[in-house]
Design a protein around this nucleic acid. Sequence first.
DNA 1: TTGCGTACTGAACAAGTGTTCAGTACCTTG
DNA 2: CAAGGTACTGAACACTTGTTCAGTACGCAA
Lengths: 207, 207
Amino acid sequence: MASTQDATARAQIRDCALRLFGERGPDAVTVRDIAACAGVSPGLVLHHFGSKQGLRDAVDTHVETLFEDMLAHTVEEPDVFASGEPQALKSFAELLASQIPKDSPIPQYLRRLLLSGDPVGRALFRQWFELSLTATDAMDASGNLRPTPDRDAMTAFLMVNDLAMILLHDHIADVIGTDPLTQEGMQRWASVAFDVYLHGAFTKEDS
Amino acid sequence: MASTQDATARAQIRDCALRLFGERGPDAVTVRDIAACAGVSPGLVLHHFGSKQGLRDAVDTHVETLFEDMLAHTVEEPDVFASGEPQALKSFAELLASQIPKDSPIPQYLRRLLLSGDPVGRALFRQWFELSLTATDAMDASGNLRPTPDRDAMTAFLMVNDLAMILLHDHIADVIGTDPLTQEGMQRWASVAFDVYLHGAFTKEDS
DNA sequence: TTGCGTACTGAACAAGTGTTCAGTACCTTG
DNA sequence: CAAGGTACTGAACACTTGTTCAGTACGCAA
């Protein structure tokens, strides 16, 4: 029932857990569910990961590693992050949309991670924020960022807006008709976002 | 351990369930947990709500009612929503911050609702979107909205940004130092948001 | 071959789960 | 007072849960 790249039973169990945890939440998924999904016995799950908590931790660190690789792969392209181009700031969402298949369980798991109060999620958010700060500073240095009195809040604002699209993409698809995590939906969403970030959303006749 | 306004045991159970469900997620909360929190026996929980699922449904509809009241109370003030003032669009967050105490379990429960794929959450999101559309149209009619080729996406963008602040407020507090759901944090956040929506975030020398 | 370690199974166990129900207390209506 | 309904208790039940463990199969070194 599961087939990604790593065909070992251990990896299959981990991937199944990742998907099921993302779909239903870890508490609503039993060890037997995961074993059935991976096509192994319940005992093997505990054999490889020690306990259900051990499996949860393994999935967490696996997701962390995935993101680290993704970010490292992006940062090493100097044109994207260090250039200070405005595009740099919306690259989290575009990164996700471009680097993962559309039926990937990663976005759903990311949701749980960020919204469960989990320390792993907090660490991830902070790490992304630090990265966003460097992007903001680069934009500022190259003159592409409009001066702001509150650099931190501005950075957080832009980053959270970006993140929100990922977290709420299915609700957005519900009401505007296209999923912003797909290729075409991303273009539509980025077009609006870029427009607002360049010209604002309100008219400024008063004040 | 619980004391809001309704002192009946039934209401206490419902409020405890609301808080615990929000904190840990419904699957991680047992009927005995709720009973202990409300200071009653486990049997009484089932006596009042039939089953745990019945309690979950009751909490859902209770939250729905709370939001309906909140929105109705706001919409009936003609100056806020119908006027087309720019302030109207960020009023969800301000509404939440102003109308609920800062230790309220509502924001956390709202998170679960919106991110669990629950149909109740979907309905709530759509309902808010419809309301946002009327606000957008009002702003457009009064000339306060910059013309946009994609009204739906623009509305969703502004609304999702607003919602994101609520969903991620504790992470935001983590990195910028103030919780945007508090009085002072709200001012700081709104200041940035309003600035971006009025003047943009990027400079527009090129393109 | 023998031995050993690892992957793996599936039955079993103890704890925890939602739920049931007989029974108690209390208030209201006749 | 009696009668009945409602709020409420807590022990018990059936089931699911995570976890354990004896046992099997297989590959590899001696």
